[in-house]
Simulated scan of single mutants.
Amino acid sequence: MRRGVDSSLAVAYLRVSTDEQHLGPEAQRAAIESWARARGIHVVAWHEDKNVGGAQALEQRPGLMAALASLRASRAATLVAAKRDRLARDVELAGALEVRVRRLGARVATADGTSDKHTTDGRLLMRMVDVFAEHERAVIRDRTRAALAAKRARGERVSGQPPYGFRHEAGRLVADEREQLVLQQLEQLLERGLSLRQIAAALTARGCRSRAPDGRWHKTTLARLARRGPTGHRPDGPCPENVR
C-alpha cells in the first residue's frame, strides 16, 4: 500500500443489474456499513451503477469510474463492495479492477470477506468466487435467452435491450442490417488472427460504432460478441455511416 493512503478511509461501490435484483442497493449499503463499523472505517464516498451487468467493461460504468476517482482524490486505502460479484461477474474484469486499485496504492475489500488476499486460502477463495460469479452470469444469460425464445415462439411481445445485431420491431426480434455488418467485420478480423485491441482499432477506423454512448469498442464487449460464435460469411469493407 503506497505511502499517504489512509487505512481508516474507504470508498464504497454498489451495482445492480437488470436481471438480478436479489441484492438491491439498500441491502448492499447495509452490508458495507456493518463492515465499516466493525473495523472503525469511515466511508468517504458512495458510488452506484444501476442497470449495469457484471460483465460490462470497466470504462462503461460511470459509477465505478467515479469510485476510482474518489479513491484517488480522498487517498482512501480501500474500495469496498458488498460482494465480489458486485465488482464483476467476469474473471478478467475482476483481475483488471484489482490492478487499477492496486496502482492507486489501495486494495479491494468486500463486506462478505471474500476479497481477503492475505492468506493462501483467502486468495483461493477469492478466485473461486470470481469464477462462480462468471458462471452464474452465463446461467442467467442462457435462461433469459431461453425465456425470450419461448415468448417469441408464442408470438408474445419481448422487451429489454436486444442482443447486438438485432432490434425490436412490432414486439419481435429482427436482424439489424447495420449491426449485422459490424458482426461480419468482427468475424473476419477474428479469422485473420487479430487481437481484440487490434480489432477495436480496425472497427473504429472503418467507422463502426458500438452501442456505448461514445461509440468506442472495448475488449470485453468484443470478447462477448466473439463468444457468440460465427454467423456465416463476413464480407470486408467499411461500415455504413453512423453505425450504432
Rank of each mutant, 00 (worst) to 15 (best):
residue 241 E to L: 06
residue 8 S to Q: 02
residue 124 L to A: 08
residue 237 G to I: 01
residue 238 P to T: 01
residue 111 A to S: 03
residue 55 A to P: 04
residue 243 V to R: 07
residue 2 R to H: 04
residue 147 A to I: 00
residue 218 H to Q: 11
residue 29 R to Q: 12
residue 140 I to Q: 06
residue 238 P to Y: 01
residue 101 V to R: 07
residue 151 K to A: 12
residue 189 L to F: 07
residue 129 V to C: 02
residue 214 D to C: 06
residue 51 N to L: 14
residue 86 R to S: 03
residue 41 I to R: 04
residue 213 P to T: 00
residue 56 Q to L: 12
residue 180 Q to F: 00
residue 139 V to N: 02
residue 208 C to E: 10
residue 34 S to W: 05
residue 42 H to T: 15
residue 39 R to E: 03
residue 111 A to E: 10
residue 158 V to F: 04
residue 73 A to P: 02
residue 240 P to M: 08
residue 115 S to L: 13
residue 187 E to K: 01
residue 201 A to R: 12
residue 220 T to C: 02
residue 10 A to Y: 08
residue 29 R to F: 02
residue 127 R to V: 03
residue 95 G to M: 13
residue 18 T to H: 11
residue 19 D to V: 12
residue 229 G to R: 06
residue 194 L to N: 05
residue 243 V to M: 08
residue 18 T to Q: 12
residue 33 E to R: 12
residue 229 G to F: 08
residue 225 L to F: 00
residue 12 A to G: 07
residue 98 E to L: 05
residue 3 R to T: 09
residue 153 A to M: 05
residue 135 H to V: 10
residue 68 L to F: 08
residue 68 L to A: 11
residue 71 L to T: 07
residue 74 S to G: 07
residue 26 E to M: 10
residue 41 I to S: 00
residue 125 L to D: 01
residue 157 R to L: 07
residue 124 L to R: 10
residue 48 E to N: 09
residue 153 A to I: 05
residue 97 L to H: 04
residue 110 T to D: 09
residue 205 A to Y: 03
residue 154 R to E: 14
residue 198 Q to R: 13
residue 223 A to I: 00
residue 123 R to P: 06
residue 93 L to I: 10
residue 18 T to D: 13
residue 45 A to E: 15
residue 136 E to H: 08
residue 118 H to M: 10
residue 171 G to Q: 01
residue 63 G to M: 09
residue 23 L to H: 13
residue 128 M to S: 05
residue 195 S to K: 08
residue 49 D to K: 08
residue 12 A to P: 03
residue 206 R to Y: 01
residue 121 D to H: 13
residue 199 I to V: 12
residue 59 E to A: 15
residue 15 R to C: 10
residue 243 V to Y: 01
residue 241 E to C: 02
residue 45 A to R: 15
residue 43 V to H: 04
residue 216 R to M: 03
residue 215 G to L: 00
residue 77 A to K: 03
residue 179 E to A: 07
residue 105 G to H: 00
residue 61 R to F: 06
residue 164 Y to F: 14
residue 56 Q to H: 14
residue 125 L to V: 11
residue 24 G to A: 11
residue 136 E to C: 06
residue 165 G to S: 01
residue 88 A to P: 03
residue 30 A to R: 15
residue 87 L to F: 12
residue 243 V to S: 15
residue 35 W to E: 09
residue 77 A to D: 03
residue 17 S to K: 09
residue 9 L to K: 12
residue 115 S to P: 05
residue 65 M to R: 15
residue 22 H to L: 13
residue 106 A to K: 09
residue 152 R to D: 04
residue 112 D to G: 07
residue 103 R to C: 03
residue 142 D to E: 15
residue 94 A to H: 09
residue 229 G to D: 06
residue 165 G to I: 07
residue 126 M to K: 11
residue 18 T to N: 10
residue 203 L to I: 02
residue 202 A to G: 00
residue 28 Q to C: 01
residue 131 V to T: 11
residue 143 R to P: 00
residue 88 A to S: 14
residue 90 D to I: 01
residue 77 A to I: 04
residue 76 A to R: 03
residue 97 L to I: 05
residue 122 G to D: 09
residue 51 N to K: 13
residue 176 D to W: 01
residue 192 R to E: 13
residue 72 R to A: 15
residue 47 H to Q: 15
residue 113 G to S: 02
residue 11 V to D: 07
residue 59 E to P: 11
residue 184 Q to N: 06
residue 217 W to E: 04
residue 21 Q to F: 02
residue 52 V to A: 12
residue 103 R to M: 07
residue 34 S to P: 00
residue 105 G to C: 04
residue 206 R to E: 04
residue 9 L to E: 06
